[in-house]
Nucleic acid binder design. Sequence first.
DNA 1: TATGAATGAGTGTTCATTCAT
DNA 2: TATGAATGAACACTCATTCAT
Lengths: 195, 195, 195, 195
Amino acid sequence: MPKVGMAPLRRKQLIEATVTTVDQLGLADSTVARIAGEAGLSTGIISHYFGDKEGLIFATMRKMLRDLHDAVASERKAAGTPAQDQLEAIVAGNFDETQINRTSSRAWLVFWAASAHQPKLARLQRVNDRRLYSNLCCQFARVLPLKDARVAARGLAAMIDGLWLRGTLSSDEFDVAGARAIAYQYLHSQLQIAG
Amino acid sequence: MPKVGMAPLRRKQLIEATVTTVDQLGLADSTVARIAGEAGLSTGIISHYFGDKEGLIFATMRKMLRDLHDAVASERKAAGTPAQDQLEAIVAGNFDETQINRTSSRAWLVFWAASAHQPKLARLQRVNDRRLYSNLCCQFARVLPLKDARVAARGLAAMIDGLWLRGTLSSDEFDVAGARAIAYQYLHSQLQIAG
Amino acid sequence: MPKVGMAPLRRKQLIEATVTTVDQLGLADSTVARIAGEAGLSTGIISHYFGDKEGLIFATMRKMLRDLHDAVASERKAAGTPAQDQLEAIVAGNFDETQINRTSSRAWLVFWAASAHQPKLARLQRVNDRRLYSNLCCQFARVLPLKDARVAARGLAAMIDGLWLRGTLSSDEFDVAGARAIAYQYLHSQLQIAG
Amino acid sequence: MPKVGMAPLRRKQLIEATVTTVDQLGLADSTVARIAGEAGLSTGIISHYFGDKEGLIFATMRKMLRDLHDAVASERKAAGTPAQDQLEAIVAGNFDETQINRTSSRAWLVFWAASAHQPKLARLQRVNDRRLYSNLCCQFARVLPLKDARVAARGLAAMIDGLWLRGTLSSDEFDVAGARAIAYQYLHSQLQIAG
DNA sequence: TATGAATGAGTGTTCATTCAT
DNA sequence: TATGAATGAACACTCATTCAT
């Protein structure tokens, strides 16, 4: 008799195996056989649950975006309501441990690059970009003129992504505290324009 | 005697075809046949001049780094000697037209991601990272205490890369002027700490 | 569950197809596509069962050595215990129908030549050479002084291989009876040294 | 002005480079580029002097046969006229230093195997086989009934080839003296049948 | 629900050959 | 006479996908 309710478990297993494999080998060398092997399952299972490899990659990137969203939401919930608190929470969420660990961040980089040539991934990535910008913009607009808020949002978004990118590509350990400090400093300098 | 002196021309042709193809199709779909076809040459020529595909990719990334270096060097030569002028020149060089055009910048992104799993590319990319940081640090150190200079350099490097990354991934045209303004503003805010 | 227990059948099919193809075309023209086609299978199956072409060639040579060993063992089992009987059985085994038919013997020649430049094949071939020599030496030593036994063994081994080689390269049908007679005559002449 | 009379020199250079390369790499890995490189010449030169690769291989095998013929002829000339002297000279010629050195003998083996699937090489090899047999037969027939002479010739030819084959494939140094002794012993045993 | 044997199109690479010089 | 740049067909091998079980 077939086991029932395996679907969510299998999907989770396969997505985690994909992140791990992509981190270790890159997207080009992440064959379905290796991903399935990493999950301790057979190759056929992937088409069973995700249609094809592209579907698995898509689901994996979507899951990572959801995790990032959750990390930010969690920080914001815990923070105070003032604009500065909320902005700091967004920064903190983006540098959350779940986001900047080696495995995740290298997978992120790979998916970003892939999104340049895969419309479906590009759509996901763009939603994410826009959300970060619009979240920042919203908060800055509470205390800055809209024009300044937009610039500040763009600058802080770039700062976050840039710190993350350089941290990921660096051979050294990601200096999270330093990165956060730099982002906060920028954030505060933008808020002081208001004062 | 056979045609002589073709080597530099052929190498240039093939490297340019690689950038074009990588921009259009991504690294995964940039087969040697397509690159050679883009260059109007045969597949065999690639191994003739670059050994194998990896050699061609490596040479292409190195050429892009050289171009970036040239763009920065050119801006710095044209700028005044004060730290602020030199720092602005470094920013300007990184947002030079040759660097932020769609073709180049998408190829850049692809190579960055690839460097995460190809040691040879990683070395090139790391040299580049370090050079940007060290150039910035050097100039900041002329007017800031070393500790502050380091933070400012890390922040500005991240800002440059972040603006570039978001501009590249965005579906809209790269707003160079806006990006430069944001970077300059950050740069100036860091210098004012000194004053 | 997928079809199971196909492995031994497929391996057998592919090895036989290899012998056939090597006989007909030589090793250089025995492409994996042709071997797979001869077996009525696809090219991918070769790497599935043998890793790569080299693995298939190795397995094929090993199988041929096993067949030769079996032919000799079978003759020796059927023969009497005296040294002369055993020696004749060894000769007979080497000229067994399974060994001197056109297909096998031409494949043998090809593998011998290939073993000169492929260490793995060389090892197989050397084990075979040594076994023939040591089997002969053992039996001769029962009735001859060791020194004479060694010479006789080397001579008879050479005679067997030489007759086989010339029979294979000849354009005429292999005259097995004649070859066996010449080998027996040499064998008897060596044994008479004892008497 | 073009150099004249280079043809014989170039042909010699290329043939020697072919023997060397075939010994070191085998026929499959002896590309025209490597052979030409070994000779210190360019690839184009081969088609210039030999038409194509096949022509070079053919010329090389023919040269080796000529060398063998010369070695035997030289020994026979130096030997007495009696049948036994002539037969011993034929054996000696076949085990001449020029024939059993590692380079030559491994090239021989390769060409033998190749002749199984290349009609042009097969013709050369067959002429050689027949010549050895017929030379032996001729001499044996001077002292033995024709029927016995034929058997003796076939046996001695096989003995010579077999000793050579096993000496070549062996990992140890070729024991020429031992090989010659075994061949002489067989030769003498055949002649004694007459007495 | 899950397997993994089997496929065959697609890839990077090699190499004999050609030919302008 | 001699070169070596250039070609493109042929090759071994990989891998996403299918499907009988």
